[in-house]
Amino acid sequence: MTGILTATLTVLLLALIFGALLGYAAVRFHVEGDPLVERIDALLPQTQCGQCGHPGCHPYAEAIAAGEAFNRCPPGGAATVQALADLLGQAPQPLDDPAGIAGSVRVARIREDECIGCTKCIQACPVDAILGAAKFMHTVIESECTGCDLCVEPCPVDCIDMVTLEPTLDSWHWTAPEVLIASDKDRGEAA
């Protein structure tokens, strides 16, 4: 009888101690907000282009955290889908890229002699990368441009081009060697 009592009391005591510990930890290490959203946001390319159907990368991160498909970011490309799949512990899905722009580095460029200074593109730019004032020529700060396309549509005179950046010596890097093993050599040359 004493044995049962001692055991019950011990378990009860342990339950109380650990309960108090957990309660303390819940208060002490309380996390505000959803850290997953921030981690997803950190993986998105921050072009703020809205091609995912959300008004920016952070809202899309929130949607992904809430269960939306994570393959709707063409500027991020397959690498972003892979990184998101790794983070979320899900199987990577093929990239949903209807316009086929994935992989190219693009920036907006204003044909400056045609610009009428309407400031419409300035208002459309999500990252404030367009410089200009009403009735003065506008120009794109190329290093800040994310290539999101959002300024192209509002332009009343169609003077904004999306330009694919050619690699320079600063951006060029070595490509992967051809994966051609010796037994494939004849096949490779035949093809």
């Binding site: 921050q46 703020q48 999500p126 990252v127 404030d128 990368a129 800040e144 994310t146 951006s171 890097h173």
Partner: peptide, 20 residues
């Protein structure tokens, strides 16, 4: 290196977007 550069650029874009 390219990924690091992209990361820096994305951080910069995020900052600018948030400021915007």
């Amino acid at each position: 290196r390219a990924l690091r550069q992209e990361k820096t650029k994305a951080d910069q874009a995020r900052q600018r977007f948030e400021a915007h």
